[in-house]
Computed example of a mutant assay.
Amino acid sequence: MVALSHLVRVASTLTVVLYNALPAAEVKAYITAHEPSGAIRMLSSDGTWFDPCSTRSGVPGTQPVPAAVITHHLGAQGSYLGLEMPVPVTSGRMYLVTDGELEFGTTGPSEGGFCPLQEPSALDTDIASAHKSWGFMEFSYRGEQLFVNPTLVDFVGTPLSVRMETPDGNLDAKGLPANAVELICEGLAGKARDEHGIPWHKLCVRRQDGSALRVLSPSHFKEADIPILDTYWDEHVEAVWNAYRSKPLHVNTQGEHGVVLCQVHGDVLVCDSESFAKPSSTDVFGCNSGPFVNEGSSLRRAAGSRLCAAFHRSTLLVENGDKQPAGGVERYYTTSPSNWYAMLVHQHAIDGDGYAFPYDDITAPGRKDRSGTLSHAYPEKLVVGVGGPLPV
């Protein structure tokens, strides 16, 4: 008998179900995605993809997208809202807000069929969304695979959980508990005391009444006004470079290049045909600048991503740290400096999983992926919980 998961099925829609786990919260949802043409669209209340530029007037400047067209309203705590989303789509985002509306706007008319859409921001305090409680997840469904990432790379806000129902059973990412923001803020305050007064607690964004609204990733340390983090990794980088002047670092690219040997020559870490300059703290926190720019050869991308993950987890100088990716989460975040935000995300996640920095899905061979990403070729339903885990 052929397994159901191996049957050919071309889906035209994906069933999406949204669950409200929060008491006394009026939850609203918004969904954006790119059609195969590359044009960005928003899922309308009638279940079709809506061109957000289609309602623009001739007046220049940013214009709001009509909320009535793009807003999906969830019911009271314990209720479900079902949607049928046309597919295939790529680079999708699902936004869930618990205290009002999120505003979307267009910054100009469509050019060549592509609409410049202004989406919510947790960083721009001039935009209303920066003062509201919300979260988002990313997804793509090209028809042959649904991929979902309940990302926390930018911030922790309203907790989201995800379940993908498939012919082979359910795939779950349980996410964070309802009080995750408060728990992580408390943990960062503790780290501020531990690390000689480095104000990690300033990553915690608070409302005017002092209550915790969200926690920013340290990649946004400049927006959080923590200039000392600009040199946070400098001494550690020097120690790593000194350690691998006299011995090789084994990096398992987990692909066509196998295990490559890296060693410092002069001021660069040479990995076969690729060389990496010393990263700055900004390079480490973001994993997308300096030596960690995600471009170049497949070897460079594979080695660079594993090096950056190792810095976040502080595994390059621990026992057997000369073999990367390091095996076992028990070896992560055991020494200072570390990405304490990521450590606290995983510590408080209900199942230990969470995508807390770029490349948090990198795992040693034979070890469980702890990023919380889900994927399947034949999804039957995507269920998203707002404010906590889904019912069993």
Results as ranks from 00 to 15, higher is better:
276 F>E: 05
266 G>A: 05
251 V>M: 07
285 F>M: 06
251 V>D: 07
293 V>I: 14
287 C>N: 07
275 S>T: 15
285 F>A: 03
271 C>F: 04
257 H>F: 14
300 R>Q: 10
296 G>P: 03
257 H>E: 15
286 G>Q: 12
255 G>Q: 08
259 V>F: 09
289 S>P: 04
277 A>F: 11
265 H>A: 14
299 L>C: 10
294 N>I: 14
288 N>C: 11
253 T>N: 02
271 C>V: 06
283 D>G: 03
282 T>C: 09
255 G>A: 08
290 G>S: 04
267 D>M: 12
301 R>C: 08
263 Q>G: 10
263 Q>N: 11
295 E>L: 14
258 G>C: 04
281 S>N: 00
285 F>C: 01
263 Q>A: 13
269 L>E: 06
256 E>N: 15
289 S>Q: 06
274 E>P: 00
259 V>R: 11
284 V>Y: 00
301 R>T: 13
269 L>N: 05
289 S>Y: 00
290 G>T: 01
269 L>M: 13
256 E>P: 08
287 C>E: 06
272 D>A: 14
261 L>V: 10
274 E>L: 00
295 E>A: 15
287 C>Y: 07
284 V>F: 00
290 G>V: 03
260 V>M: 04
276 F>K: 05
257 H>L: 10
300 R>G: 04
268 V>M: 13
262 C>H: 02
283 D>I: 00
301 R>W: 09
303 A>Q: 09
293 V>F: 08
274 E>F: 00
269 L>Y: 05
282 T>N: 14
263 Q>V: 09
258 G>S: 02
273 S>Y: 10
260 V>Q: 07
302 A>E: 14
298 S>L: 11
291 P>E: 02
268 V>P: 02
283 D>C: 00
266 G>V: 03
280 S>K: 04
254 Q>L: 12
254 Q>D: 08
257 H>N: 13
279 P>T: 01
262 C>M: 03
275 S>C: 09
291 P>H: 02
252 N>C: 05
270 V>W: 10
264 V>K: 01
269 L>S: 06
302 A>N: 12
271 C>M: 02
282 T>Q: 15
301 R>A: 11
259 V>Y: 09
259 V>D: 11
302 A>F: 08
274 E>C: 00
287 C>R: 07
299 L>Y: 11
274 E>I: 04
254 Q>A: 09
289 S>A: 11
278 K>G: 08
279 P>I: 00
277 A>M: 11
265 H>N: 14
252 N>M: 05
278 K>L: 09
301 R>P: 02
281 S>A: 00
292 F>H: 05
279 P>N: 01
258 G>I: 05
285 F>H: 05
285 F>E: 01
300 R>P: 03
280 S>H: 05
